[in-house]
Amino acid sequence: MHLIIMRHGEAGWHTIDQQRELTEMGRRDVAAVAAQIAESEFRPKEIWCSPYARARQTAAIIAEVLNCPVDEKYFITPDDDPGQCLDTLLDLDTRTTPLMLVSHMPFVGALSTLLVDGHRRGIPFMTSQAVLLDMPVVGPGCADLKTQFLP
């Protein structure tokens, strides 16, 4: 299974957390990362995104560039348990891969670290940063970091 994990683009601070929207710079950075992913051999077949506004906007930009569907998932918000996402990935039909997740810190860091290193301490992600994980078997510590996409 190939999994692309991305942190949303830069967002403003003018409203409550769930409603924060992307800045112009955030939109540009997300579009730049989307273009890199489009040129790679790992174009996602589906995008899962957090229901927060900035993640939905990020996913919409990616989906437009890559022409793939977006599905909101309520278990990938900033403070959710990455173990629940892992359980869902275990049940996933592998024909839907590569799969892309668009979420937030600390969730993206905790999930990536769980999949690569088997613990949940979490690595930092910049806004609009994405990583590509290769998981021959879905499970803690079973993924290899193949590449990253930066704005």
Rank of each mutant, 00 (worst) to 15 (best):
F149G: 05
H104R: 02
I37S: 08
L86P: 02
T113Y: 02
V138H: 12
R54Q: 02
R20L: 01
V102S: 09
E72T: 15
A143Q: 08
A35S: 14
L132R: 05
P140L: 01
I61D: 01
V65Q: 09
D93V: 09
A110N: 12
K146R: 15
G139E: 05
P136M: 10
V70R: 12
Q19A: 11
L101G: 11
V131D: 00
E21T: 08
Q57V: 01
C68T: 15
C49G: 13
P106C: 06
S40A: 08
D17V: 04
V138G: 06
F75L: 14
V138Y: 14
W13Y: 12
A59V: 14
Q19N: 10
R27D: 04
T88V: 15
S128W: 00
F125G: 00
Q129S: 11
A110Y: 08
K73M: 14
N67T: 09
A130V: 02
R28S: 11
M1C: 03
H14A: 15
P140I: 12
A38P: 02
P106I: 11
P140H: 13
Q84R: 13
A53F: 13
C142P: 02
R54L: 09
S103F: 07
Q57G: 01
D17T: 06
Q57H: 03
A31I: 11
P51M: 14
E46A: 08
P140Y: 15
I76D: 00
P124I: 04
Q36W: 03
G109P: 03
L92N: 00
A34D: 01
L90V: 11
P44M: 08
Q19G: 04
R95V: 05
G109W: 00
D81P: 06
F149P: 01
R56F: 09
I5A: 10
C85K: 06
G9E: 03
S112M: 11
E72K: 11
D117H: 05
E39H: 14
M126G: 14
H119R: 13
P78S: 05
C68I: 14
A34H: 01
I5C: 02
Q84S: 11
L66T: 00
L115S: 04
G122C: 06
R7K: 03
I37G: 00
Q129M: 06
G83I: 06
L3V: 09
P51W: 08
I123L: 12
L133M: 10
M6F: 15
Q36T: 08
E46I: 15
I62F: 03
T77N: 12
K45N: 13
R95T: 08
D144W: 11
V131E: 00
A143D: 06
L150N: 15
L111G: 04
L111C: 07
E24W: 10
T88G: 09
L101H: 12
V138F: 13
V30C: 02
D144R: 15
M135N: 10
R121M: 13
V30L: 02
L22V: 03
A143M: 09
P44I: 05
V65T: 15
A53T: 11
G118C: 11
T15H: 03
F42G: 08
D71M: 10
F107G: 02
H2N: 09
R54V: 03
A34E: 04
P98H: 04
I62V: 14
L114T: 04
V116Y: 04
A59L: 14
L99R: 01
A143T: 08
